[in-house]
């Protein structure tokens, strides 16, 4: 870690924070509709993990994936346009907030069925192994996913087939309004992964340095052919599950405590030379441009509605 890298990571985390704050504003103005799951508070996880990847690696994420998409390098303009439902969006307005996709950066969603992305990530890693490509597949999911059968089926296959895959569990303690302790007999998730003989580690998901370094180690291990790795990142979402909820399921004091660990506060504590004001300035331009781009985007013709069901009909 050096100042350059610290600046880079800080920039990405701040971009996600400000981008999503703008999303909230645009949601209130009814420019954005549907579900909108914010990543605010959890930025260090996506930014730290993406730092360790190459452009050849593949990513599967969940419905809470604005942060992952931005950290991976999908242009903010295209993400905002997607949230606006515009044709210039990264999924042509067909996906929305929960279904961001991008072939260029190998971003495979945006899968909004809890655990639904894991089996596909397994298959992607399997294809890399069969074709002898030295690529890694990364799969993000919340701790809620651990209760699903697909989670256990997938971990077993990854270990059994010795696949080049990194599992990243974003343990923010709640699945919607249900705390982990109400749903799991064993709340240490990394232990469950270890029981499948997967190298697994619990880390501080609020500390981007730790996430980045653990991810680098994990990716190196995977690339050298040593099979899957599982990172349980302890983190917290500062906002409601989706845009609004009454947050009856947790204490305000708990939220405040976690806010003290904000990754955007944490990183500059170690790197006091990060020029926060300059990052703010740059990012505010990026966000303004994204909004303008989305505002000026086109609404796809309704005549094209039935395209994209079968490949033969796709107007590429």
């Amino acid at each position: 870690m050096d100042l350059d890298l610290a600046n880079k990571l800080y920039h990405k985390m701040l971009l996600i924070r400000r981008f999503e704050e703008k999303c909230v504003e645009m949601y209130s103005k009814e420019k954005i509709r549907g579900f909108l799951h914010l990543y605010i508070g959890e930025e260090a996880v996506a930014v730290g993990v993406m730092h360790a990847l190459s452009s050849e690696d593949a990513i599967f994420a969940t419905y809470r994936e604005h942060g992952h998409a931005l950290a991976r390098g999908i242009h903010p303009n295209r993400i905002m346009a997607e949230l606006y439902g515009k044709q210039e969006g990264c999924s042509r307005g067909r996906g929305g907030s929960m279904h961001l996709f991008d072939a260029a950066t190998r971003f495979y969603g945006g899968i909004a069925i809890v655990t639904g992305g894991l089996p596909m990530a397994i298959g992607m890693a399997l294809s890399d192994k069969m074709m002898k490509r030295n690529k890694v597949t990364v799969c993000f999911f919340g701790e809620g996913a651990v209760a699903e059968g697909e989670f256990h089926e997938s971990l077993n296959l990854a270990a059994l087939w010795h696949l080049p895959i990194l599992f990243v569990c974003e343990n923010n303690l709640y699945a919607m309004g249900t705390a982990l302790e109400f749903t799991q007999s064993e709340t240490n998730i990394s232990l469950k992964a270890a029981s499948y003989r997967i190298t697994s580690k619990q880390i501080d998901g609020m500390n981007v340095t730790e996430v980045a370094e653990s991810s680098e180690e994990a990716i190196a291990q995977i690339r050298s052919g040593n099979g899957p790795v599982f990172l349980e990142c302890l983190t917290y979402r500062f906002r409601a599950h989706s845009m609004y909820d009454a947050e009856l399921y947790r204490q305000k004091s708990e939220v405040e405590e976690w806010k003290q660990k904000d990754p955007l506060i944490r990183l500059p504590q170690d790197w006091s030379d990060i020029n926060i004001a300059q990052h703010e300035e740059e990012i505010s331009h990026i966000i303004d441009e994204a909004v303008e781009f989305a505002e000026n985007g086109t609404l796809e013709s309704v005549d094209d509605l039935e395209k994209f069901i079968y490949s033969s009909e796709v107007a590429r």
Partner: peptide
């Protein structure tokens, strides 16, 4: 030969197809 994991191996088929198989 897969384990009795219909969801995971069917999903793995999707992922492998996306990966060029």
């Amino acid at each position: 030969d897969t384990p009795l994991s219909e969801s995971a191996f069917t999903g793995a088929g999707i992922g492998a197809a996306l990966g060029g198989m």
